[in-house]
């Protein structure tokens, strides 16, 4: 039974973050949103495992709450 990795897992976090931001350079908001959607689908397919994906969906939604 696989679990979502929620501890640091990317060796050079700063570098990846910079790449992610740079990826959006010069794009309109609409283009950026489309790119994000494509990126989510690419990564989701790489994960594959339904349970991990479910945990990822929940984690992403939960972290956006400001009520508790």
């Amino acid at each position: 039974m696989a679990d979502l990795v929620t501890t640091p897992n990317i060796a050079d976090a700063d570098a990846f973050y910079a790449d992610l931001i740079a990826l959006h350079d010069g794009l309109t908001e609409e283009e950026s949103a489309a790119l994000n959607a494509r990126l989510i689908l690419v990564l989701a397919n790489h994960v594959g495992d339904a349970q991990v994906l479910r945990q990822a969906l929940d984690a992403a939604r939960a972290a956006g709450r400001r009520d508790g």
């Binding site: 489309a34 494509r38 689908l41 690419v42 397919n45």
Partner: peptide, 16 residues
Amino acid sequence: LFRNAVLDLAAHHAFA
């Protein structure tokens, strides 16, 4: 947005 993202990816990648 996601629907069109799927279609854009499907033209290039079997996974989509």
